[in-house]
Write a protein that binds this DNA or RNA. Structure first.
Lengths: 195, 195
DNA sequence: TTTTCAAATGAACGTTTGTTCAGTTAAAGG
DNA sequence: CCTTTAACTGAACAAACGTTCATTTGAAAA
């Protein structure tokens, strides 16, 4: 079989990435085989190698894409105002960006150790950049006297840790709508940086 | 070779569990082979089956032991006082208990999906129990007017998510001593539940 | 209609996997 | 000193792994 109804690699390529995303998020990188991914796509294992160099690239591409979408989206957020408005904008952005991306978040936090050392270094750098945006906001707010916090870096890690756990339990159509989650978390963060 | 210098399964048994803990935390359950674990112990792969029924039990035992130590230790904490003292006691307990147990925490949060369904159900129940202790404290504090929080359950998940991330970055002998970490986090939590 | 070639097949490769088990070893019990 | 037996070896098993590649397919171009 080949090229049925006007289709070709423009169809299968994305399908491969989607299948990899879904299955790796579900079972973990090491636990998923190329044959499972191929079956999900509806193709034989050998055909995957028309779309990826190897299994490792499948993982790296998922994580790198996620980090690049994240920083591209963050760039569009206005963080130029007061520490308070910057913090609120950052927190709400983080929640809204991460919640619909359960699978990417899961993979980006759990499968880092399955990245080859070179790939890992790339990703860790991006992550630190992101963390430092929040740390910078907290530092500015501490210096201006807006926030009463002890350590901006620890606080930023703590807050991101808290926020990143959301997609792990949040389910669309659950007890609370996303907008309410946003309010609750922003409330926690807001209070946590003041006396 | 067998039984050298008064040794036997009392030596090898714990060694097997330690090797499994170390290697699974490092590389992940699916990525670690029985042969790797055996090599770490200093034994052939077949010998492991004197100490574990199979690979799955190795994982389940680690996670279950962790959860049982956790609830046993929590039982000794005095949570009978005011919501404020109960919350402080719980938070400090959580930090002090989890920080020296990096590997168990890592495994207990990352490898849940590699548990057989039956085993998973057991662990998830224990986890919910623990979460609900904190949720109970928050609920009591909300009703007494001590805490200004919107949703005790969400808040408890948020706080535990934040606290559980600590061992992932905390390194003994790092920039901050454990006692300081404890203070910083307790500060964040304390402020986060008040106006 | 015939030619072309991207796309996919399916078999094959060398490894590695979890697990079993008959056989070996050496410390402890009589 | 001889017997027992817990502890371990080392080979073997079928199955699954990631990856390669000659071959087949069928829609589109000529």
């Amino acid at each position: 079989m080949a090229r049925k109804q006007g289709s070709h690699s423009d169809i299968t390529g994305p399908k491969v990435r989607e299948a990899a995303l879904k299955l790796i998020a579900q079972h973990g990188y090491a636990a998923v085989s190329m044959r499972q991914i191929a079956a999900e796509v509806g193709v034989q294992a050998g055909a995957l190698y028309n779309y990826t160099a190897d299994k490792q690239s499948l993982l790296f591409d998922i994580v790198l894409d996620h980090m690049e979408e994240l920083s591209a989206a963050l760039k569009k957020v206005d963080l130029s105002g007061s520490p308070w408005s910057a913090l609120e904008a950052f927190i709400r952005f983080h929640i809204v960006f991460h919640v619909p991306r359960v699978e990417q978040v899961f993979i980006s936090y759990m499968e880092l150790r399955n990245l080859d050392p070179d790939n890992f270094a790339v990703i860790e750098g991006r992550r630190r950049d992101y963390e430092q945006v929040l740390a910078g906001i907290l530092k500015a707010g501490k210096e201006s006297g807006d926030f009463t916090i002890t350590d901006p870096r620890i606080t930023s890690i703590a807050l991101i840790g808290m926020l990143t756990a959301i997609p792990q339990w949040y389910r669309e159509g659950g007890r609370l709508p996303l907008s309410e989650i946003e309010e609750i978390y922003w409330g926690i963060v807001r209070r946590s940086v003041t006396t």
